[in-house]
Amino acid sequence: MPQPESQRTLGDIEQTAPSADPAQQLIDQLGGPTGMIYTAIPIIVFVTANALVALPIAIGSAVTVALVIMGLRIARGEPGVQASGGLAGVVVAGAVAAWTGSAGGFFLIGIWASLAGAVVALLSLLTRRPLTGLLWNAVHGNKFAWRQDRPSLRAHDIATLALATMFASRYVVQDWLYDTGAAGWLATAKIVMGTPLLALALLVVVWAFRRSTKRLA
């Protein structure tokens, strides 16, 4: 016999409440659109400063701006770990630039990360365990046999291929620019191939997530 609304417990309400959209969870983990824009600002500052002053000062300028951005994000109520991610990336990039003694070194970590992302995504496709499908199932507690559902598997094949293409194109273009020593063009490529390409790839990922959720969850 159904319980009256007034007698339902908090646990009952939580069990009947719809779960959060996994696609939105993925975007939130990336910091959302504003968070992705924040990552471009220190890059612009670094390249601009490097054209005007010595490399150590350019690195210090980028780190300072990243520190200010972190403070603003924390002041807006963002989690400290998420807000500090951008600062950590700039500090590491600056350390590599200082170690190599070249402005191009500031972008090496991103280039290597793109190569790693492309390899992981492609390997997951070759082993018939597309990366986005693994992420979708992890969000849902790894309780669905999503690989047995052909439409869901196909959707995640497409989404993972989109990610692999994004990472591979970043690596090929930026590695070539790094080899030619074109730091200014490298910064432009990093920004243009950053948020815009990621947004396009995430559209495909969101479609695959929602397709699987509709069919299985």
Rank of each mutant, 00 (worst) to 15 (best):
V81R: 14
G89E: 00
I111Y: 01
W176H: 11
V81C: 04
P79H: 02
T127F: 14
R154G: 11
V206R: 13
D157I: 09
A199I: 15
T132L: 04
L87K: 00
L135K: 03
N50M: 09
G89Q: 00
R215M: 13
G133T: 06
G194R: 07
T34D: 04
I69E: 04
T100N: 09
F46G: 07
I43H: 02
L161P: 05
I191G: 07
G71A: 00
T127A: 12
V120H: 00
A118L: 02
L186G: 12
P196L: 13
R215K: 09
R73G: 00
L123Y: 04
F209I: 02
R150I: 15
I41L: 11
L135R: 02
L126A: 06
I74M: 12
T64H: 02
P33M: 04
K214P: 03
G104K: 07
A113M: 11
V47P: 00
E5R: 15
A113Q: 07
E78S: 07
R211V: 11
T180D: 15
L200C: 08
A20K: 12
A164I: 07
K214W: 10
T48W: 14
S61I: 03
R210H: 07
R128D: 06
P130S: 01
L123E: 01
W136F: 05
I59A: 08
A155P: 01
V206Y: 14
S169Y: 10
R76Q: 12
V53R: 05
F209C: 03
Y171F: 15
I13A: 15
V45F: 12
T195S: 12
G80L: 12
G194W: 08
L161Q: 05
F46K: 10
D21C: 12
P18K: 10
A182V: 06
A103N: 06
T64M: 10
I59C: 05
T213G: 06
L123P: 01
Y171P: 04
A189F: 14
G32T: 08
Y171V: 03
I111S: 04
L30E: 10
S61G: 03
T180L: 15
L123I: 05
W176E: 08
T48F: 13
G117Y: 00
A208R: 03
V172I: 13
T100D: 07
Y171W: 14
T64R: 05
D28H: 11
L198I: 10
Q25K: 14
A187V: 12
V119N: 07
V192Q: 10
G60E: 05
F107H: 06
T180H: 15
P79D: 04
E5V: 14
W207P: 03
